[in-house]
């Protein structure tokens, strides 16, 4: 694999729309469940173990076999009950494809795939492995929400990065577990759900004033 390409793919500065998404954090801040770094830690741990595992597995699966993209996309639909989250995932998938098309040669996989599928396809086009795709997915998920936390709550960025460093081994573990299942049939891939993220996203979508798209 090319470590430099992996770092590019995992970089928060990749112009792929992520900066406008809080990964479900904004509603949990609004309802008072996340107020500080501890609250953020609980949020990120749960998110990593649920959406993180699922995203990492689907990114790895798409990277391992891009011809399964459509089927994997359907699998994510079945794992994403919230229409607001499906929309957010597809918007980020589309944005990621835009960046990916400029960087590597991508096979056609439709206009708005779910974000993990797009990520897996980009990883494959960059010559990366399913394990790379999966770590990029898990890493992107926690860092995206963490940076939204810094912006929304004015948290100390060093405290938040200390938290991210503590979560790194967990991130590695989840990504490895996800990548090990990359070849499973779609119905057997991880399906860990997070009810509160679904509920929060549906509430968030009805707000008149919000800072993040999701």
């Amino acid at each position: 694999m090319s470590l430099a390409s992996l770092l590019l793919l995992a970089d928060g500065r990749l112009p792929s729309g992520g900066h406008a998404h809080s990964g479900g954090l904004e509603p949990q801040i609004a309802n008072g469940r996340v107020r500080n770094v501890d609250g953020l830690a609980g949020f990120l741990r749960g998110k990593l173990a649920t959406t993180g595992l699922v995203s990492a597995a689907f990114a790895a699966a798409a990277c391992a076999d891009v011809t399964r993209s459509a089927e994997l996309d359907g699998g994510l639909d079945a794992r994403t009950p919230s229409p607001a989250l499906r929309k957010a995932s597809r918007a980020q998938g589309r944005a990621l494809l835009r960046a990916g098309r400029a960087m590597w040669s991508l096979p056609p996989i439709g206009r708005e795939p779910h974000q993990p599928v797009a990520l897996g396809v980009l990883a494959a086009a960059a010559g990366l492995t399913p394990a790379d795709a999966s770590i990029a997915a898990a890493h992107g998920l926690v860092t995206g929400s963490a940076s939204a936390g810094v912006r929304l709550l004015g948290l100390d960025p060093y405290a938040v990065h200390a938290l991210l460093a503590r979560l790194a081994p967990e991130c590695d573990r989840i990504a490895a577990a996800a990548a090990a299942r990359a070849g499973d049939p779609v119905d057997d891939l991880p399906a860990a759900g997070a009810p509160l993220l679904d509920i929060g996203a549906e509430h968030h979508a009805t707000w008149e004033v919000r800072l993040f798209a999701s």
Partner: peptide, 25 residues
């Protein structure tokens, strides 16, 4: 014949963050 809803939920020891602000709260 199509999978409409696929969901797993784990709570308790061994399920990191299950009672945090992403999963159940």
């Amino acid at each position: 014949g199509f999978t409409l809803y696929r969901h797993e939920l784990a709570v308790g020891p061994g399920a990191p963050g299950w009672d945090g602000a992403a999963v159940l709260g």
